[in-house]
Design a protein around this nucleic acid. Structure first.
Lengths: 338, 338
DNA sequence: AGGTAAAAATGAAACGTTACAATCCCACCA
DNA sequence: TGGTGGGATTGTAACGTTTCATTTTTACCT
């Protein structure tokens, strides 16, 4: 027993194929017709063939999402929320994890599959091949969190302002030796964080000790670095950490060194999650604006899809400094003379 | 400038449409023809329209994946690996997160989209509506980690044997008061863990104190329970925990109670990850077999797709007990008389 | 009742492929 | 030289929709 098609329904209802189509798509139609079609439709257990529909309308209802690493819970959270938002518009996520693929190839595959939209987290900023591939990509596209030529729609996390706030908060507590551990600065997030840090210092007329700005190479052990910074007469009294993995390591090292938090050492971590907030002391964090980020991505995407937007925009979504118990005033012994 | 179609290529190459199709699909064809077509194809920058192809062949090259919660890094890891495996077969993941959706609706949507295969992690075992929906689902399907009627292909994690090993290891160290925190037992994983626990005890002729088997209700604070178990003359001397979130809480509570690990308290956690292994002491874990799991899922899926398998199988993939530093012999003061 | 305009429904032509029956071509053999 | 067999190619009918120009019906007005 083959699946029934729109023709079967038309025959069963005694109307034309076109009319059935109209009913199915909710176009204006007489109540009488609508009823006849609905009846036939349930009688035959008909469901429309999306494939045929796609081919006719040239739209798949799929949005491609290219993710650096799904094992990063941050992207998991984004996807949860994205999926929910897209659902409301009848869209679904077609996923490609960067692991074992080249961005370019993924783009090609997405194009072949005729996705209706694309959300892209590039792994590099200035690969000209990638940029031109993205330019050829005709479907609506949103770039996330990387500095990309302004002819693309983009959403970025407001690291600069966020870190500036965090640093300013610590400065207000009397800290001067504030270490910033951050992603490598050849990518935008790293640069932005550094800029925010410098702005906060500059705003108070303080000078920055470059020694305290530490890029984290992937796959390299950050512990020796960390250990060095936390010892000696001009040790760091406050730490801004880029994620919970390194936070765990740091907490452990602090304990080894006999530094208690927040009395001897203040800590702020970027990226909020369950265990960070239930830890004791609860960790002050710079929260990633997952919901806002997703809302913005979807909004930009939809704007492009329905053609209501004329030209590309870049939106920066703000982070939120969540104050908890891991920061305190600078210890007296480390206070600098003023 | 509209995209070129197979017709354009045919005209450009001076051959028939059918021939172009044959070349494109790698069917046997004379070298002469192949060359002409390839030339025309690159000249026109033609790429086949997957939608039309899909509609004709009735296959989308998409595999639906229904996930309870993308923010769980475990599923992230699964997706990373799954994506890579499927890629090799020209398949892509179409994702639906359970958040805000009913399993039934997702199934319907996947069917409408005509996915070629389905990987499903059900949120309940015996919803008859869900089961019958799954039965109607004609595409190849693999159920993950839940006990489902044996007419479905399924992959399960070998919790029973794993927990049995873990418990046996602790028993061997002299522990008798071993607490098992586990998912609710109305779902398969919970039941299996409990069974493994009981088997280990039975095997040594020991009796189980049911007080030490603690189901974890979602959204309920497990801390009071935990605190109660860790105090008093017959406190638990070993703990088996179901994940890293609760592990974090437990470590913190142990510190509050002045219990050091592994001297006063032995701990095993289910699910391995970075920070668990770098924590001090490094935590002994029961590792989820992500890679094997994914391999098996793909294998079962492909078996069904190419019709090389006659009837459903359920495969159980083994966990691995990773010994680290969080377990030690039972403290003398808590040793039971024998 | 006749005429007309608007509304509703129809029918057939796409959409870009694949698949298959029908042709064509060519080499080979008697 | 005239078949003949078989591989290579062709042409066209699907696949299940949507869309749009036509035709039919309905409702209204004089």
């Amino acid at each position: 027993m083959a699946r029934s098609t729109i023709k079967d329904v038309a025959r069963e209802a005694g109307v034309s194929v076109g009319s059935v189509s109209r009913v199915l798509n909710g176009l204006p139609v007489s109540p009488r017709l609508r009823q006849k079609v609905e009846e036939a439709r349930t009688r035959l257990r008909y469901e429309p063939n999306n494939l045929a529909r796609s081919m006719r309308t040239n739209s798949t209802g799929a949005v491609g999402f290219f993710v650096p690493d799904m094992a990063n819970p941050l992207y998991g959270a984004i996807i949860n929320s994205l999926d929910q938002r897209l659902q409301a518009r009848g869209l679904m996520l077609l996923l490609a994890s960067a692991r074992g693929r080249k961005a370019k190839d993924v783009l090609a595959e997405f194009r072949r599959r005729r996705v209706d939209g694309l959300i892209f987290v590039p792994d590099s900023e200035d690969d000209p091949e990638l940029i031109s591939a993205l330019e050829d990509f005709s479907a609506p596209t949103v770039i996330q969190s990387v500095e990309f030529p302004s002819r693309f729609y983009g959403v970025r996390v407001g690291y600069r302002v966020g870190i500036r706030q965090a640093v300013d908060y610590l400065l207000g507590l009397g800290h001067r030796r504030i270490a910033l551990l951050k992603p490598l600065s050849h990518l935008w997030p790293g640069r932005e964080r550094e800029a925010g840090y410098r702005e906060a210092f500059a705003h108070r007329g303080l000078t920055v000790d470059d020694e305290l700005l530490r890029p984290l190479a992937v796959g390299l052990n950050p512990m020796p670095d960390l250990e060095a910074m936390l010892q000696g007469p001009d040790r760091a009294t406050a730490l801004i950490l880029p994620g919970s993995r390194i936070l765990a390591l740091t907490l452990q090292m602090a304990r080894q060194l006999g530094l208690s938090i927040p009395e001897d050492l203040s800590i702020i971590s970027v990226g909020d999650n369950d265990w960070v907030s239930t830890y004791s002391p609860a960790i002050t964090t710079l929260r990633w604006p997952v919901e806002t980020l997703v809302d913005t991505m979807v909004e930009l995407l939809v704007k492009q899809m329905d053609g209501s937007s004329q030209r590309p925009v870049q939106v920066t979504v703000p982070t939120e400094l969540v104050l908890r118990d891991s920061c305190g005033p600078v210890p007296p012994s480390n206070r600098e003379g003023d």
